[in-house]
Amino acid sequence: MAAATPAIRSPTASPRDWLVPLVLFALLAAVPLLAKLGPEGFILSLMTRVVVVALAAMSLDLLIGYGGLVSFGHAAFLGIGAYAVGILSSHGIEEAGPQLAAAIGGSVLFALASGVIALRTQGVYFIMITLAFGQMLFFLATALSGYGGDDGMTLPGRSLLFDRPWLKGDAALYWVSLAVLGAAYLGLRRVTASRFGRVLRGLKENEIRMEAVGFEAFRYRLVAYALAGAVAGVAGFLLANLSGFVSPAVMSWQRSGDLIFVVVLGGLGSLHGAILGAAAFLLAEEVLSHYLEHWRLVFGPLLVLAVLFARGGLVGIGRGRGA
């Protein structure tokens, strides 16, 4: 297992650890200004997607990169967040507060319920059981014929903040998403540097030893699973607002695969790697699909090559091997 996962650096590290994330966030903050130079609406919506996917991938990094828990059903939480927006607004509740509460509450509940069963298993079985839970939710959504069923449903509009359409503008939604990503980054950085985070990493390295020292693996992992689910639920809330549309496709297993790829491409166990990964993934997809009709013919092999040769992810490139 150790081969492809980069050594996690200690939380009390040099200022260099802040440099890359700071540059990344500064670049993201400059996007609304730069967007004015080109097709503004298009650039903003693409970059909002980058930010939202980065948020979901960052929460998955907590599970895979720090906890060693390869969840293949993380898109389910995106779906819960998105459907919280869709279902509530179809009943006339368009206020962001209750929608967010439902997104987070639903995600945590689902994470706890499925985590209790999934965390009994290990390794490949964990990958597969998280996939199974994701599929259950996917089929549940396709069966919600009152809420669009297979086809999904179009939202009446973006969520309201304090009864006002503050999220209506593309730039506004971008700033809100970026603020959420920043908050999540700082929050998750604190969490991973805390005692809880160290226990989680310890369990990844050697579960038996950690149990012998007296930590109960199950509890720590369940909390991490619920926390990651909650963050991804918020990402789902933002995603629904961005696309103005909610459908079961949000939580198909291919989307979960995409999220894993984004995290691994960016670099496991770094948090800000998720931002790099999301940007690289979505921009590559956008550029390739713009120039080539059959862009997947290039994209698939790129994925294979990335796995074979870019060990440690994009984050690892600046750092150098074995740093």
Binding site: M1, A3, A4, T5, I64, V70, F72, G123, V124, I127, G257, I260, F261, V264, L303, V304, A306, V307, L308
Partner: peptide, 8 residues
Amino acid sequence: DHLDQVLA
């Protein structure tokens, strides 16, 4: 590891 295999 399994993660790389899944992705490739």
